[in-house]
Write a protein that binds this DNA or RNA. Structure first.
Lengths: 131, 131
DNA sequence: GCTTGACTTAGAGTTCACTCGAAGGAGTAG
DNA sequence: CTACTCCTTCGAGTGAACTCTAAGTCAAGC
């Protein structure tokens, strides 16, 4: 089991943020008798997944819904479909972001090499000489 | 020449935001005698480039610096190197975002197909039957 | 000449996701 | 026992990027 400061180090996330995520309903660590948060490997894995979702701009609100669906799932109420829907929705967004980034990467690369063409004397990263 | 509302339509950006970008020093349209903004195709192209940079999380502040360098450029003060540095810096960021997105896309796709494995009866986007 | 609708400005308000601060409690080392 | 560190909560503050409001100006059509 890990303390919040260990989780903070392991995931490179401030303790403040980890508590904030808990308050927002994204994370449910165990507690000691005295109320201290205790995290196991599964909690860490989940947090890492959440951080990935955030890094790809899934809103906290939607992640909360996803978590809530997990916790609402029971024998007579299966939430798999709803969770799937949320995942697929985010997948679509991620792919859109990928497309946008790829286009922009090309534009920037193009602009950079046009600068090099106009100013052949410029130092710095030249189109790699190797190979 | 285009009015702000035409630019708004052409770039799918609110007139508010376009004026805001101008206030932030990202955009310098012409003005009529009475002070009405007038945009030409070059302005539109530049705005589209700015929107790309924004969509890939280049801060407005940095875009402003980039624009300012253009306008500061003169015969005895060439700013090409500084502009190149800004572009290369953003290129690095874009590539990092690409890597993150690709990883996350894989994770989500994996999770989605594991849902499908567990619930083979689920409707919706199945791993495409075509081809 | 007057109405209409798009335009102008400065500045205030909103949203999101943190980020921090203050005040205090629990467990451990000396 | 005392000092120290890490933990707790609640609530306020921050920063970026919009987003909107209010009050007013201007040009075109009737």
């Amino acid at each position: 089991m890990y303390s919040i400061s260990e989780v903070s180090r392991l995931t490179d996330t401030s303790a403040h943020t980890i508590r904030y995520y808990e308050k927002e309903g994204l994370l449910f660590p165990d507690r000691t008798a005295s109320g201290v948060r205790q995290y196991d490997d599964k909690h860490i894995d989940w947090l890492r997944f959440v951080l990935r979702l955030r890094a790809t701009h899934m809103p906290i609100d939607q992640i909360r819904q996803y978590v809530a669906l997990f916790r609402a799932s029971s024998d007579d109420h299966d939430t798999t479909l709803d969770r799937l829907a949320l995942l697929e929705q985010h997948q679509t967004l991620v792919r859109a972001q990928l497309a946008e980034l790829q286009l922009t990467e090309q534009m920037i690369t193009e602009k950079i090499s046009s600068y090099h063409r106009l100013h052949p004397s410029i130092p710095g990263k030249q189109p790699s000489q190797s190979r």
